[in-house]
Write a protein that binds this DNA or RNA. Structure first.
Lengths: 114, 114
DNA sequence: AACCGATACCTTTCGTTGAAAGGTATCATA
DNA sequence: TATGATACCTTTCAACGAAAGGTATCGGTT
């Protein structure tokens, strides 16, 4: 009850969404997430890498190794299956957050009016 | 990675918010949450009761027993401390969801424009 | 009278999952 | 040569929601 960080499922959602728009490697993703959310969300590598591996295992992502400046980068891209999965996640996300936003914005009277 | 239910911290948020508007007992809360979210969110008693106990332990809620129709009901109300806590949760919730919504709605080009 | 579903409380167990911390290696820079 | 950034990774931990089960009372039905 201490955390309440509202982050359940969010790493998976953001990772798939960003990778759908552009192929990226893990380290790049970590920074991209921070940048794209205006520092509101900052995922550590200990969250991103395991997620990438799990998503690839499930067939939602595919990876290819690339050598840049003597360093190895593992680029990830979303598969067709991953895109379908992401669509479901976004749909679910919208549904849930809309319901919560409505619920916490309602007054008891407005609720009764339903 | 299977669940992705986006429910982290949500029970605490909804419980505090509903109880801030109106004093309620556990069983009533379970149904109220379902009703207020249009069946989008349904918390079991196994989630609600432990949450209520934890929140009372933290001083965010206070309870009073009431006998109605031979059945005992435990009514919970939000304390001043709980209200302050809730305000922080709502603030945090808005911040996080706004950032995510923005991030998943952005195109790569729009992101670059930042 | 017996039964069942709804009401009302509760606990224990389980699996997932995000967070933190630590570990390796390369490259550029000071 | 030492440090910080880059780039990969794993292990450990705690928290939390979900499910399931447990008790008891009441009202209505058969």
């Amino acid at each position: 009850m201490t955390g309440s960080s509202f982050m359940n499922g969010v790493p998976e959602l953001l990772i798939l969404r960003l990778l759908e728009q552009q192929e990226m490697y893990g380290y790049e993703l970590v920074q991209a997430i921070r940048a794209r959310t205006g520092d509101a969300i900052s995922l550590g590598e200990g969250v991103v890498y395991p997620s990438l591996h799990a998503l690839e295992r499930e067939g939602a992502l595919k990876s290819r190794r690339k050598l840049v400046n003597g360093r190895t980068r593992v680029y990830y891209a979303v598969t067709a299956k991953g895109a379908k999965h992401l669509a479901g996640l976004v749909r679910h996300w919208s549904h849930i957050t809309a319901a919560i936003t409505r619920a916490i914005g309602e007054t008891r009277h407005a609720a009764a009016t339903l």
